[in-house]
Design a protein around this nucleic acid. Structure first.
Lengths: 176, 176
DNA sequence: ATTCATTTTCAAAAAACCCGTAAAATATCG
DNA sequence: CGATATTTTACGGGTTTTTTGAAAATGAAT
């Protein structure tokens, strides 16, 4: 399937701009776009990567909560699967990145604010205080917007429909 | 100023998670948080970086449109300055990343869709079509939301106030 | 308990990325 | 123009990140 391959390549190419390694992005893309349950061996073969690389990145993807791992009874091999709801998956990634990357930075900004003595009325200090405050507010706003958008499954659907022109939808298979 | 230093370090640390190199993030942070016009030499000294490194990353920041470069009459040295409106700056960065990173990916996804023959009614093809469509819609939604949020200076301000509790604001200096 | 299939770990190799140096280019002044 | 100040470019080496491959660990089946 030529189109699948193309997508996997593109996803891998794009990943570096966002601080994600190529293999992880490609594994994710593969599961996402095929909708199938795949074994590590199948993915190793399709992506031409080593066993160790696959193992580590699949673990990371699992820790990120964007893929799941099953084992069919009577079969020793694990199979990996991406959830069918891509919108939810997206929301999940954003939530996770916030937790891991934004929240620590917000803490750090608060620390910075605490490091400027109240008594310091210099212009330098005033500017610093102001800019830190604006950044904090910005982060809060994005958090708020995100919460409103992805508050629940329902609202995502609503959003989804109100923002986009309805297009033809096709049914999908389910895990397993 | 201890707090400035701390912020610069934090911004540099965070950058790697987002595909931005440390020096570029630190230069940006420095200009952003001090609100001052600084020369390359001043920044080189504060960040302990080389001339070449500073030059290249300042150029990149300028190409990204997040800093400006002036030269005061009778002075040979360039000075660099970050715009005072941090919210606008943020909007600008998002817009730019969309243009550079998202748009090409959206094109690629369209290409992928075009690669699946209409005639192919296999489940594999249906799923692929569906998922690509969902991704496209997602990108469109985010685009739409972003446009609505940052449609104009005014709406940003409105947003800004409606989403966050009003806090004490301090005046700032202007470029020069 | 042993074997066999599979996954995980980790040290080392490879690749990608970043940065400093110094030479080249550009700009300003006399 | 020539001298001086400053910025830019090129590239070699250093650092970090990613990937490999093989050994160790796991765990299911006999």
């Amino acid at each position: 399937m030529q189109a699948q391959e193309r997508f996997v390549m593109e996803w891998g190419r794009m990943s570096s701009s966002w601080g994600i390694n190529r293999t992880m992005a490609q594994l994710h893309a593969l599961l996402l776009i095929t909708g199938q349950s795949l074994t590590m061996d199948e993915m190793i073969e399709r992506l031409h990567i080593s066993r160790g690389n696959a193992s580590m990145n699949l673990r990371d993807l699992h820790e990120w909560g964007v893929i799941s791992r099953y084992r069919h009874p009577g079969n020793r091999k694990d199979v990996y699967h991406a959830p069918d709801d891509i919108v939810q998956m997206f929301a999940h990634v954003v939530r996770e990145r916030k937790r891991r990357e934004i929240d620590p930075t917000v803490s750090a900004i608060r620390d910075c604010m605490a490091m400027v003595p109240e008594s310091d009325q210099s212009q330098e200090a005033e500017i610093l205080r102001n800019r830190l405050a604006v950044l904090l507010e910005l982060f809060e706003i994005f958090d708020e917007i995100f919460k409103q958008i992805f508050a629940s499954n329902e609202s995502v659907k609503t959003m989804f429909e109100s923002f986009s022109q309805p297009k033809s939808k096709t049914p999908e298979d389910s895990p397993g």
